Simulated scan of single mutants.
Amino acid sequence: MKNIITLFAITLLFSCQNTAQTKKQQENITNAKPVEVPLKNGLAKAYFASGCFWCVEAIYESVKGVEESISGYSGGHTKNPTYEASNTGRTGHAEAVEIIYNPNIVSFETLVDVYFASQNVTQVNGQGPDKGSQYRSIIFYQNEEQKQIILNKKEALAKKLNAKIAAEVYPFQKFWVAEGYHQNYERLHPNHPYIQNVSIPRLNRFKAKFPKELLKESH
Rank of each mutant, 00 (worst) to 15 (best):
F210S: 10
T122C: 09
L157V: 09
K147V: 08
Q183M: 06
I138C: 11
N162S: 13
N204R: 15
Q183D: 05
K160Q: 15
Y135V: 10
E168G: 02
Y115N: 04
V106N: 02
N120Q: 12
Q148F: 09
S199E: 12
F116A: 08
H182W: 01
Q119M: 15
A163N: 13
I105V: 15
E213H: 09
G132K: 11
K147P: 05
S118I: 09
K160S: 14
P171T: 01
N184F: 06
Y170G: 13
N120V: 10
G126W: 00
F140V: 07
N184G: 05
K212P: 08
F116H: 03
H189R: 07
R205V: 10
K209D: 08
T110M: 14
N104K: 15
K147R: 15
I149H: 04
V198N: 00
I149M: 06
S107K: 08
Y185S: 02
K174S: 08
L161S: 08
T122E: 11
A163Y: 02
Q119K: 12
K209F: 01
Q127R: 09
F175Q: 11
S133G: 06
V114F: 01
N197S: 13
V106K: 03
Y141P: 02
S137K: 15
I195G: 07
F116R: 06
N191M: 10
E109A: 15
E168A: 12
I138Y: 10
A208W: 05
A208R: 14
H182M: 04
S118R: 07
F175S: 11
N104Y: 05
W176L: 09
E168P: 00
V121E: 11
I138N: 08
E145P: 02
Q134H: 12
A163W: 04
Y141S: 08
L188M: 07
V198G: 00
I139Y: 00
Q183Y: 01
P103A: 11
R202M: 15
E155S: 15
T122P: 00
E155P: 03
L214K: 15
Q123D: 05
T110I: 15
L111F: 01
Q142V: 04
I105A: 14
V177A: 13
H192M: 04
L188P: 00
V121I: 14
E168Y: 01
H192R: 07
I150N: 00
A208V: 06
E179R: 09
K207A: 13
P129W: 08
Q148G: 07
Y135F: 12
F140S: 06
P211A: 07
S107P: 05
W176Y: 15
P171A: 02
F116M: 09
L203D: 03
N204M: 14
Y135P: 12
I150A: 01
F206W: 01
Q119P: 00
P190I: 08
K174C: 03
E179W: 10
L203K: 12
N143L: 04
A166F: 03
E213G: 06
F108E: 11
A158K: 11
K159S: 13
Y101I: 10
L188Q: 10
I149A: 03
S118L: 09
I105E: 14
V121N: 13
H182K: 04
Q146C: 01
V106R: 02
R202V: 09
V106D: 03
S137Q: 10
N162A: 12
V121A: 14
L157Y: 07
A158D: 05
Q196E: 11
S118N: 10
A117P: 00
N102G: 08
Q142F: 02
H189Q: 11
V177L: 14
